[in-house]
Design a protein around this nucleic acid. Structure first.
Lengths: 249, 249
DNA sequence: ACCGCAACTTGAACACGTTCAGAAAGGACG
DNA sequence: CGTCCTTTCTGAACGTGTTCAAGTTGCGGT
């Protein structure tokens, strides 16, 4: 990205921006990404850095703008609100989670081991951000927020995540009650949300307790899944599945 | 402040304030309740009314003060922050929950029926506030918030709530694995928190789905509790209890 | 009556997230 | 070049929660 024989349209700057093209008309409120792509990135990078350095609440929009060398209003041109800067954080976190989970998923076939690896990978990624992430995860808990994992806006991220747990299941040699199987990935995702919820509240140094939670819960889930085919438990399994179907939208 | 014949001490105003007395020195940051008790009540009543009428976010501190006929600063003399007004809402809700649960608990001895009644009573109390309660329950999800159900500040409310579920269990003729029994009330309370979490996100009219959740989950819990004594499940029970003990502070 | 002190009350001022009317900066077309 | 239009950018201004130095009030002691 340093040479100057850059062809046709190039000013030689946006190397990544080349990979645009397929601007799917999802129809969100975002400005049609073009010249300002660089500015957008600059603001985003600055914001995330400051969040990490000072915490979310302690980072003012004015500080972000100043540090990025733009006016406050400009930040609002690219991001609807301070919260929407977080959304980008989620996106990155999610992407890295997928990336880190890839290796163990390729290597392992045992269901419990796969699940355990994916859960740990998630916390691995989140880990360094615990201090500031915890303070805004509350926003995600608000039902009306677009950041809620159940919201329409995050449906893409959600299905990505659920897809990850689908792969956990499919790549394994676990035997699962056929009635349970189609819904299990979503349940595992819910369990993952539970882990995150615990992680957010986890005050132990290095959040080691969350690790214990994962290591403790995975065998239980594994056994429960196996037992779901047992005669004594079949009715409970069926009943549970029935309830879940009722409660889902 | 208009007439001048004001006699010695009496303006004839504080009839309720007479019932003070036992000012237990808990030593919180609250101002020593005395003359201002009336003002405090006035502000609180006004605030809760406005919350209900306009919603939490739409109610400004200025509006509360104006409506109550005091200065903004005065509201902050009695309540540390806008959020602390919510805390009072919790307290009342909790008290009414206890009150409403009393009757069914006195009448019923079946564990499932008792649990079901208590859960429904909770939602009964919360019901009318769904519109505005949902918007600030997020605050409770924040780990650092004093409103968090896990915080030190709400330990009294917490133990009250857990006590309610203790009574659910003790007043029943349920047979429970002795290893599980001492911790079951807390687990039931956690389940109740889960119900509330669902309720907050419940968009169905009248939150009927939450009712379905209760009616569906109670039999499952009931059966699970019963099964906990079963041979096949004993190891799982034990393992689960072990995990929970590890994870608790 | 007066003093002194603590309880209470005030409203201007602060910092923050957000909005908005308007500049600047490109670029396409003549 | 000039004209027009869209994209990008600006900073003052608004409404909010919260703070604070300064006032007022009521009461016990003299």
């Amino acid at each position: 990205m340093s040479d100057q024989t850059a062809p046709t349209t190039a000013a030689g700057e946006p190397p990544t921006a080349a990979a645009r093209g397929a601007e799917s008309a999802v129809g969100a409120a975002e400005p049609t990404r073009a010249r300002g792509e660089q500015t957008r990135q600059l603001i985003l990078e600055t914001a995330l850095r400051l969040f990490r350095e000072r915490g979310y609440a302690q980072t003012t929009m004015r500080a972000i703008a100043k540090e990025a060398g733009v006016a406050v209003g400009n930040a609002y041109y690219y991001f609807e609100s301070k919260e929407h800067l977080i959304q980008e954080f989620y996106r990155r976190t999610q992407a890295e989670h997928l990336a880190r989970a890839a290796a163990p998923l390729a290597a392992e076939t045992d269901f419990a081991a796969r699940l355990r690896a994916v859960l740990h990978a998630g916390i691995d990624v989140l880990g360094p951000s615990h201090a500031f992430a915890a303070t805004f995860f509350k926003t995600a808990a608000e039902p009306t927020s677009p950041l809620s994992p159940f919201s329409v806006q995050s449906s893409e991220a959600r299905s990505d995540a659920i897809g990850l747990f689908s792969e956990v299941l499919e790549g394994s040699r676990a035997k699962v009650d056929p009635e349970l199987r189609p819904d299990l990935p979503e349940l595992l995702w819910l369990a993952y949300l539970g882990v995150i919820l615990y992680w957010v509240h986890d005050r132990s140094p290095g959040q080691t307790k969350t690790r214990l939670l994962i290591d403790g819960a995975v065998p239980l889930i594994d056994r429960l899944v196996a037992l779901s085919r047992l005669r004594v438990l079949r009715p409970i399994t069926a009943q549970t599945m029935q309830l879940i179907k009722t409660l889902r939208h």
